[in-house]
Simulated scan of single mutants.
Amino acid sequence: MKVVDNDLVMGASGKIGKMLVFRQKAGKTIIAKRGIRTAPLSVDQEAVTERFREAAIYAKKVSDDPLKKALYEAVAKPGQTAFNLALADFWKAPVVKKITLDDYNGQIGGTILVRAIDNFKVETVTVQILDGNSSILETGQAILQDNGLDWLYTATVENSSLQASTVRVTASDLPGNKTVQDQVVE
């Protein structure tokens, strides 16, 4: 059922007893039956509840920070708020789509190209080069390229054991979610 121009519920928010919940979204009033849980939460449900609590705290901090809030508001669609976007961003870690080693030959100045994406913004991409014994040869920050998708890392240390090496990429987003992906040099 759809009710249009009903002065009784227009702009309403909150709850009526233990029966109904009113909320606003994109200028529309949403009315829903209030659910009441009687069973205890499972371990997985507790984990999701805690993660949601953390996401809400992050989103509130974004709303209180004019600079971060402006970042989220700049991409908000109609009906979305910076709080909504920050909440969603907290839930989703970046994805490392591709690590390209074509221009990395173990020499200083060789480059590694990383494609990393996020539902909002990849904040940093860190590259580590490990030798065959998993010892770190070098670590550094990749530079975001003009296309907004690819990150370029330039090697600063000579790698004499190239074939047994691993390139480890860590992509981070604004809420601090991290994704780590390794690629063996072949």
Results as ranks from 00 to 15, higher is better:
Met1Ser: 14
Lys2Trp: 12
Val4Asp: 11
Val4Lys: 15
Asn6Met: 10
Leu8Lys: 12
Met10Glu: 11
Gly11Arg: 07
Ala12Leu: 08
Ala12Gln: 02
Lys15Cys: 10
Ile16Gln: 07
Ile16Arg: 03
Ile16Glu: 09
Gly17Met: 06
Lys18Asp: 10
Lys18Ala: 09
Met19Arg: 03
Met19Asp: 03
Met19His: 01
Met19Glu: 04
Leu20Ser: 06
Val21Cys: 06
Phe22Arg: 07
Arg23Glu: 14
Arg23Ser: 15
Lys25Glu: 13
Ala26Arg: 11
Thr29Tyr: 10
Ala32Lys: 13
Lys33Gln: 07
Arg34Ser: 10
Arg34Pro: 00
Gly35Arg: 05
Arg37Met: 03
Thr38Met: 01
Thr38His: 05
Ala39Ser: 03
Ala39Pro: 00
Pro40Ile: 00
Leu41Ile: 02
Val43His: 00
Asp44Gln: 09
Gln45Tyr: 02
Gln45Val: 00
Glu46Lys: 12
Ala47Val: 10
Val48Tyr: 09
Phe52Pro: 04
Arg53Ala: 13
Arg53Gly: 11
Ala55Phe: 08
Ile57Lys: 15
Tyr58Trp: 14
Tyr58Ile: 02
Lys61Trp: 01
Lys61Ala: 15
Val62Asp: 12
Ser63Pro: 02
Ser63Cys: 04
Pro66Ile: 11
Ala70Asn: 08
Tyr72Pro: 13
Glu73His: 07
Glu73Trp: 05
Ala74Met: 07
Gly79Asn: 09
Gln80Phe: 11
Thr81Tyr: 13
Phe83Ile: 10
Leu87Val: 05
Ala88Tyr: 06
Asp89Gln: 02
Pro94Asp: 05
Val95Asp: 12
Lys97Arg: 14
Lys97Val: 11
Lys98Pro: 02
Thr100Leu: 06
Thr100Ile: 04
Thr100Gln: 06
Asp102Cys: 00
Tyr104Pro: 01
Tyr104Gly: 01
Asn105Trp: 09
Gly106Arg: 03
Gly106Trp: 02
Gln107Tyr: 05
Gln107Glu: 12
Gln107Lys: 12
Ile112Arg: 03
Val114His: 09
Arg115Asn: 14
Arg115Gln: 14
Ala116Val: 03
Ala116Glu: 04
Ile117Met: 10
Lys121Arg: 15
Thr124Ile: 00
Val127Asp: 01
Gln128Trp: 05
Gln128Arg: 13
Gln128Val: 00
Ile129His: 07
Ile129Val: 15
Asp131Gln: 01
Ser134Trp: 05
Ser135Ala: 15
Ile136Asn: 05
Leu137Pro: 01
Gln141Asn: 12
Ala142Met: 06
Ala142Cys: 06
Ala142Lys: 07
Ala142Ser: 09
Ile143Ser: 15
Ile143Ala: 15
Asp146Ala: 13
Asn147Lys: 00
Asn147Gln: 03
Gly148Ser: 06
Thr154Arg: 02
Thr154Ala: 00
Ala155Ser: 15
Val157Arg: 04
Glu158Ser: 04
Glu158Lys: 02
Asn159Ser: 02
Ser160Glu: 08
Ser161His: 07
Leu162Tyr: 15
Gln163Asn: 13
Gln163Met: 10
Val167Glu: 05
Arg168Met: 06
Ala171Asp: 06
Pro175Tyr: 07
Gly176Trp: 05
Gly176Cys: 05
Gly176Met: 06
Asn177Trp: 00
Asn177Phe: 01
Lys178Ser: 11
Lys178Asp: 14
Val180Ala: 01
Gln181Asn: 04
Val185Cys: 04
Val185Tyr: 10
Val185Asp: 05
